[in-house]
Each structure stands twice: as C-alpha cells, then as structure tokens.
Design a protein around this nucleic acid. Structure first.
Length: 513
RNA sequence: GCCGGCGUGGCGCAGCCCGGUAGCGCAACCGACUUGUAAUCGGUAGGUCGUCGGUUCGAAUCCGACCGCCGGCUCCA
C-alpha cells in the first residue's frame, strides 16, 4: 500500500489502486505528486509526496485554463462538425485554441460558442486520461491531421509524453484530444470563463503554413476573479497611450503622413524635451559622448554593414541623386562606426562610448505597427561602445546597469530577459560567434540576470540580450536590445593601436531602445 | 504580408441588415446665468458619410478595388 506524504506532514496510506484525489480535499482540482502536476485520478505506484492544487493557485489556474481550452475545442467541434483542432495551450491570464473550422467564424459567433461551452460544463463530463500506443492514437485521431502530425513528430522522443511508444489522450464524452494534461476532474470544474477574441494564427507559428482560427479566452477560479480581471482590462484600455495622446493633445498620426509616422504636438514637444534631456544627461554621467549623425547615407555604407543584404525589405527604397543612391537610415550603428574611424585610435582611447537620439526609419510590415510602440519613423535611444576584448564583459555589465536604470525610472522593474543566440545565417565566423555568445552569458551570470535562451533569434552580426516587458493588457513588448558584435568591426576594418604597438580589432556593443 | 473587425462633422457614436440626398452627445462659437471645480440654460456654425470605381431612376446604405485604423499571427537590425 503506497504511503503518502502530505503538506501537513501526515503520512496516510493509500489503498492499492486508489487515486491520489481520494485523500485530498474537495477544493483540489489537481495534485502535485513528487513535484509533478497530475490528475486527481492519478494512481501512484509507490510512496510519493502529494499536494493539493487549488483552482486559485498558479498551478490551479493553469490546469483550469488548459481544461477550458479543451472545452472550447469540443464546443467548436459540436457546432461545426468536421473542425480540426491543432493546439490549445494556456497563455498569460488565459488560454486559446487553434482550429481549422469548416465555416466562416467571426467574433459574432463567440457568444454561441460560449453557450455551447456552458452546456458542456453543465454536462459535467469527466476528463478521462488514456495512455495508448502511438499507432492507436493515430487511429483514434484519424480525421485530425494536425494531431497526427504532432504524434508523428513525437517519434523518437522518449519520456515526455509517455513511456516508450505511448502517448496520452484525454477524452470528454466522445471527444478526444492528444494532451499531456493534467486536467480538472470534470468539465463542471473549470471555473468562471469567457471568450475574449478571435484571430488568425499560423500553424506552428510559421507564416508559410496554413492559417488557423485562434479563439482566445480567459478563465478564473471564481466569478469575482473573472470580473476583477475584466475590470483590469477595461482600466488598461482607458490608459492606452494612443487614447491619452489624443486626449492630452500630445501627438497624432494623420493619414497624409503615412502609417507609423507621428506628429508631436506642442505639449508632446515639452514632454520629449524632458525625456531627451534626461536621457542625454544620464549618458553623459555614465561616460558616454554625444554624437549627431545624418538621416541618410550612400548605399555603400549599408552594403558594407550588411544591412542592405539582410534588411532591404524593411528599409525605405533608395533615392537616386547626382552623387549616388541614398538610403534613409534604419539604424545608427554604421554612422557611429564612421566616427570611430575618423582617426587612428589608441588602446588608451578605449572604451569609446557614443550615444545618440537617432531618428531612424524602418519600413515595418503594416500589421506590425502599433501606436508609438511600433512605428515606421521614430527616435531611438541608441548607443555603441567600442572597446578592447578584455574590457568587453565589464562594459556589458555597465550597459545592463544603464538599461535597468532607464526602465526602472519608468516603473518597469520586471524585465523578461532573453538571450538570443546566433541564427543559421550569420556573417560571423563560428569561433567568434561562440565567443560573442559566451561573453553575453558571462555578463548575464555575473550581473545575476535570470534569462531564457532563444535559440537562433540573434541578429546576423551577433547574439543579443533583449529586455521585454508586459503592458497593462499582459502583452509582451521588446524594449531594449543589447548586442555583442564582433562582425561590424571586421566589416568596417576597425582597428586600434595596442600597447604592443600592433594593430588590433576592437569589439562593439550595441544598445538601443 | 496573413486572418478577423472597423472607417459617418474636432472627439465618441446612431443610421447601413429591409437603398430615396445625414442624426445624437461632448467639444467649438454667440448670448444668458453666476450656483466653487464631471460637465446650467438658450441659440449658432460645422459632415455628403476613408478613396476610387460599379450596380441603380436614386447609395452613407448593395458590389469591387485601394488606403487607413483596431485585435491577433508573422516580423522586430
């Protein structure tokens, strides 16, 4: 008979074959068994520790929302037979399900779907976990090509889904989904939920793949929690910078200007002066020099930097003149490089720190634009440090420090930090690529910044550390990016005279908001 | 760029489904009132309904293309 360890320190025995749920209170919706989230129906093989998972906890909300996603998919299948369902994970504050629905479905249909979900909740269908072989799962999900694709991709991956060849299915009534679980015991337990929006999303996040209908919802432990959440959203909408910009007469973007281009009105101008003065003073205090560079440059500059080869689509087309083709700048780095190269540099000159509030123009994809958060023309707080390799880590630490100070000043104190490693296509030699990434890792660890790795998300000239923040609606926005660059110094043949009287290659750090 | 929604006086909206030359609130302007900080009373002016094209005797209302905005997806040097 398995002996359990409960959070209160007691050690009850569980009769052979009994699920862990039988020793937990009625308010448990799932369990943590030896640290792993399990269904209440989980039957332990031997002695284990068991904790109840309640709906309002972080774990509980995850289980609740994921279960709601299943109910959503089942409801859509009930309304539109022939619907194929892809994936239905939880997200910040909610959940979604990606579906291929054989009908035109829009936001107007959300109430009907929700109604059907409530019917499924009223039926209180148990979530039944089944472990089956991959081949059986393929047979059971015969009409579900997305699920089949997932199952086929699981071939060779052991452990995560089930032992060896097995995968897990969760069944409600006759509706079956491929899923790791766990789930609430039955559909009657998914709490207070509502559907929030509908949109398109590419299968597996790749725009070359077919587009599915993504339905978003949110679920909470209680009606009150749900209401409070909806109130927070409404409040956040009232504080939307686009709305405030109009109400306070700060800025506007008339159609004659073009998408993503903004006018700053007199009151906005005062605001910008305050902001810009503050940022410049901050840089001066931290040993940066201020520079100013033009808005356009000959194409050769962008050819040398490599931006033209990589980003031509996102640059405004060139203008032809009597002295060659000119591009409006999408970034400031090459100009700062030219300032460095304007004279012979000594190792004593390094690090050289330059900073500019540089106005740049990027021909961003139309759908990406969003108020002042994603624009086609805007001023970047952009700085570059050119230094000796032995100064690199310390300089990056200084950049992290500056970055966090800037964000903290505006009340953003919980960055979500990503380390983006080099993509498949890079202009860096493998050895330098490895060095650049190692340097960033060293700096991150020395600074004590928790981060997650985003493989292959770096720039073509180097790996980067990005600082993301959530807005009041829970959306993530990338603000600062910090890059370690061994490539541009090479491309622009940057040098400095070392203590040994030999010429050396400096390293470059980019920081931009 | 993709999916969905939307585009009516400065702002927020109704009208559009069931085609017959546009309505409300706030703001503005004029006047009255003067009661201490969420909006007093009366009056005036302001739009041809994102743009272009089509259907029709006739379109804000139907159809198409384009432009722009919003929510996501993708992208974000």
């Amino acid at each position: 008979m398995p002996r359990l360890t409960l959070p209160d320190g007691t050690h009850p025995e569980l009769p052979e074959g009994e699920p862990v749920g039988s020793v937990l209170g009625p308010d448990a919706i799932a369990a943590r068994v030896d640290g792993r989230l399990r269904d209440l129906s989980f039957v332990p093989a031997g002695d284990v520790s068991v904790e109840p998972v309640k709906a309002a906890s972080e774990d509980g909300l995850h289980v609740l929302r994921h279960s709601a996603a299943h109910v959503l998919a089942q409801a859509v299948c009930r309304l539109w037979p022939g619907t194929r369902y892809a994936i239905g994970p939880t997200v910040h504050d909610g959940f979604y399900y990606d579906l291929a629905i054989p009908a035109h479905v829009s936001a107007d249909d959300l109430p009907r779907i929700e109604e059907t979900m409530r019917a499924i909740v009223a039926e209180d269908q148990p979530f039944i976990r089944e472990e089956v072989s991959r081949s059986e799962a393929l047979a059971r999900l015969e009409d579900q090509d997305f699920k089949r694709e997932i199952i086929e991709d699981l071939a060779g991956q052991e452990g995560e889904v089930g032992p060896g060849d097995a995968v897990t299915l969760y069944r409600n009534d006759h509706w079956v989904d491929l899923c790791l679980g766990p789930h609430v015991p039955s559909t009657g337990r998914i709490g207070a939920f509502t559907l929030t929006s509908i949109s398109g999303a590419y299968w597996r996040g790749d725009e070359k793949n077919p587009q599915l209908t993504r339905i978003y919802g949110t679920a909470w432990a209680t009606r009150e929690d749900l209401q409070a959440h909806l109130r927070r959203l409404a409040e956040a909408e009232r504080r939307d910078h686009r709305l405030l910009g109009r109400q306070l007469d700060l800025f506007s973007s008339p159609e004659e200007l073009g998408p993503g281009l903004w006018l700053w009105h007199p009151r906005g101008g005062v605001f910008r002066k305050q902001l810009e003065d503050w940022v410049r003073d901050l840089h001066l205090a931290r040993g940066y020099d201020l520079v100013v560079t033009p808005h356009i440059a000959r194409s050769v500059l962008w050819e040398t930097s490599g931006h033209l080869a990589k980003y031509a689509d996102n640059m405004y087309p060139p203008m032809q003149t009597d002295t060659g083709d000119y591009y409006v700048k999408p970034m400031n780095c090459p100009f700062h490089v030219l300032i460095y190269k304007s004279q012979v540099r000594s190792y004593r000159d390094l690090p050289m720190r330059v900073s500019e509030l540089g106005t740049i123009y990027r021909h961003e994809r139309l759908g990406a634009l969003h108020g002042l958060l994603r624009i086609r023309g805007g001023t970047q707080d952009d700085s570059h440090i050119i230094c000796r390799p032995d100064q690199l880590v310390d300089e990056i630490l200084g950049v992290f420090d500056l970055t966090l100070e800037i964000h903290r000043t505006f009340g953003f104190s919980d960055p979500i930090v990503n380390l983006s490693t080099l993509p498949g296509q890079t202009i860096l030699e493998p050895e330098m690529a490895a060095r650049a990434t190692e340097t960033l890792v060293t700096a991150l660890e020395r600074y004590g910044l928790p981060y997650t790795e985003a493989e292959g998300e770096g720039t073509f000239y180097g790996p980067k550390v990005d600082f993301h923040f959530r807005d009041a609606l829970g959306r993530l926005w990338q603000l600062t990016t910090v890059q370690c660059d061994f490539a541009l110094p090479e491309r622009f043949d940057m040098r400095y005279s070392g203590e040994d009287n030999e010429l050396h290659r400096p390293v470059m750090i980019h920081r931009a908001i």
